[in-house]
Simulated assay, not measured.
Amino acid sequence: MAILRAGLIGLGMMGRHHARVLRSLEGVELVAVADPGGDPHSVAGELAVLRSAQELVAAQIDLAVVAVPTRFHEEVALTLAAGGVHTLVEKPLAPDVEGARRIVQAFEDAGLVGAVGHIERFNPALQSLRTRLEQGELGAIYQVATRRQGPFPNRIADVGVVKDLATHDIDLTAWVTGKAFRSVAARTAYKSGREHEDLVAAVGALEDGTVTNHLVNWLSPMKERVTTVTGENGTFVADTLTADLTFYSNGSVPTTWDAIAKFRGVSEGDVVRFAIPKPEPLMTEHTAFLQAVRAGSAEAAGIVTMRQGLATVAVAEAVIASAAKGETVDVVVP
């Protein structure tokens, strides 16, 4: 098996984790790193810290990971596409739909594998949840609700909570259900003195009518990452902080207590917490990307394709537009 030469641009909080995983992958050698701001976490090791994506391409790399701030994603990704480099771009793919569309087109025209780092897809709890939904364990899906809140991360300076955090929920909701967003209605708030929103509440409708609800903020002292999927057979709850998946089934035992028996609806049934393997999501993501690169196909290994990343950016922009207009906005993906 040929060793693939890897490059990494962006050596900040996420970049240091990407460097660690790249160095641990069999069949990959991290040969070049770049960051115009230097190496604050000392991840370069013996490697020289390059200054640009052009220098990264000149190092004759086969694949690259882009972990720079969102506003630089388009410039860096287009440079790597022009250099013939298979690329994984941290989420979101770009700060706006037009930038994301240009990136998608560049990689498709070049015949390169392009992926987006929506890490939640590789969380063990959500992977197990998706498999169980595909197998029909929940029956018809009625609603997907997510809560993602915690303190403000100092690493974020160029986007608000919608494009940084809520894009996780947008992507995972479409992925676990296998359905695209049709429309969204949202409200945002600005409470921390920054130019970007730090709180959003969004209601959505998927193409099959499934209702979605997303509560996301940077204003809570507690950290929460929960996805709840309700359907005709019960409810799945995935906690992606602990990678736990729990199923609350609808009751099947007749209720004899008269006051409760008159309630027309479901009742409580068995509760099952599944024992599932818990590999590191970032390792799983990199392994899938590597498999796709070796296969020469973005569809081969279950990676988040750039077209899927484009769709997520389109939904995020619709959320922001809805909050600004105070009305429901249809999602249009170019």
Rank of each mutant, 00 (worst) to 15 (best):
I61W: 00
I61P: 04
D62H: 06
D62M: 10
L63A: 00
A64P: 13
A64W: 06
A64F: 10
V65G: 00
V65R: 00
V65E: 00
V65S: 03
V65M: 00
V66N: 12
A67L: 02
P69D: 15
R71M: 15
R71Q: 15
F72N: 11
F72W: 11
F72D: 12
F72I: 01
F72Y: 10
F72C: 09
H73V: 14
H73I: 15
H73S: 04
H73C: 13
E74M: 12
E74K: 14
E74F: 03
E75C: 08
E75N: 09
E75P: 07
V76R: 07
A77D: 02
L78H: 02
L78I: 05
T79N: 06
L80G: 04
L80N: 04
A81W: 08
A82T: 04
A82E: 15
A82P: 05
A82I: 01
G84F: 12
V85H: 09
H86K: 05
T87Q: 14
T87S: 09
T87W: 13
L88G: 05
V89Q: 04
V89C: 12
E90D: 14
E90C: 02
E90Y: 03
E90A: 05
K91H: 11
K91A: 08
K91E: 09
K91D: 09
K91R: 13
P92D: 12
P92G: 11
L93V: 08
L93K: 02
A94K: 08
A94V: 02
P95G: 11
P95C: 09
D96M: 03
V97N: 02
V97E: 15
V97G: 01
E98N: 05
E98Q: 08
G99P: 01
A100F: 05
R101K: 14
R101I: 04
R101V: 07
R102H: 11
R102K: 15
I103G: 02
V104E: 12
V104Q: 04
Q105C: 04
Q105G: 05
Q105D: 14
A106M: 06
A106G: 07
A106L: 12
A106Q: 12
A106H: 06
A106W: 02
F107G: 03
F107K: 04
E108G: 01
E108V: 02
E108I: 03
E108K: 04
E108C: 04
E108F: 03
D109F: 08
D109C: 03
D109V: 06
A110H: 05
A110Y: 01
G111D: 13
G111S: 15
L112D: 00
G114S: 13
A115Y: 07
A115S: 15
G117S: 12
I119W: 00
I119H: 11
E120R: 11
E120Q: 09
R121I: 09
R121N: 14
R121M: 15
R121T: 07
F122V: 07
F122W: 13
F122L: 01
N123Y: 10
N123Q: 10
N123R: 07
N123F: 11
P124T: 04
A125N: 10
A125G: 12
L126N: 14
L126G: 09
L126F: 11
L126D: 10
L126E: 13
Q127P: 04
S128V: 03
S128P: 07
S128Y: 12
L129E: 02
L129G: 01
